[in-house]
């Protein structure tokens, strides 16, 4: 579904050049859920931004569903790939109602029968019709994230890029959103590429994951390795150790 080969992403140039991602190579199969973990600044979100075309400078090869990506992304690409952002408070237009957000997206994807599609989309993400004419400030964080997911699903994408989809939410709401994502993947055969710093969340959602450190992928592992806590790279071990226990040895 997604193949990334020798991907480099950088910002600035000359003396100020920062290499955010260095020679990243991985692939995600159709229907699979793949996790990218690491600390802030390790370049995990930058990979997602490079795939969607939000990073200005990159080199290497990105192939989605058999098509190599160039500098520009066309409409067909955005029908196939969609992204859900971290902060549902920032990613929805404050002056657009849920209906406007979804109808506009559907219109841009060239879908017909918008009225009916909006209600099915809301149904799909577990929001009833009564949410249709609300504005973002009238929704809770979890409900907003559901709207953001509905928007991503509007063009019936195959690959969903999830950038810390639940880190701004309470644990009880996080459980609901993660369940929704699990069900959607099963129903629609979606492929997920998920970025998170929360290892338990990644272990719950993904079959395979890559650990990143300062722009480089240091290790790739299956989720069983994570569960048994037997990663081979020392950095993954320390990351795992830190997130499993905050125990203070006083």
């Amino acid at each position: 579904m997604l193949d990334i080969e020798n991907l480099n992403v950088w910002f600035g140039d000359g003396r100020d050049r920062v290499d955010a991602v260095k020679a990243a190579t991985f692939s995600v199969k159709q229907g699979e859920s793949f996790g990218l973990v690491g600390e802030s600044g390790s370049g995990k979100s930058t990979i997602l931004r490079a795939i969607t075309g939000l990073a200005p400078h990159w080199s290497g090869r990105i192939t989605v569903d058999g098509t190599d990506l160039g500098k520009r992304r066309d409409r067909a690409f955005y029908k196939k790939v969609q992204m859900v952002f971290q902060d549902p408070y920032a990613s929805l237009h404050p002056r657009h109602s849920v209906d406007q957000v979804l109808s506009e997206t559907l219109y841009l994807h060239g879908v017909g029968d918008i009225d009916k599609r909006v209600s099915t989309l809301l149904e799909d993400v577990g929001l009833g019709a009564r949410f249709r004419f609300r504005y973002p400030h009238q929704l809770s964080g979890g409900q907003r994230q559901r709207v953001a997911i509905a928007r991503a699903l509007a063009g019936e994408p195959k690959l969903l890029l999830l950038d810390e989809p639940t880190s701004a939410l309470d644990v009880s709401v996080q459980a609901e959103i993660l369940n929704l994502l699990t069900d959607l993947r099963e129903d629609r055969g979606l492929t997920y590429l998920m970025v998170s710093h929360d290892l338990p969340v990644v272990s719950h959602m993904c079959e395979r994951l890559a650990v990143m450190k300062s722009g480089e992928i240091v290790e790739m592992m299956g989720v069983e390795t994570l569960r048994k806590m037997t990663p081979s790279h020392p950095y993954s071990q320390s990351l795992l150790g830190a997130s499993v226990s905050h125990k203070i040895t006083a």
Binding site: S172, H204, V244
Partner: peptide, 14 residues
């Protein structure tokens, strides 16, 4: 409602 690394399950308890 917290996911656990050592205890996988398909759905979390809401």
């Amino acid at each position: 409602s917290l996911p656990r690394i050592e205890d996988p399950r398909k759905h979390l308890v809401a």
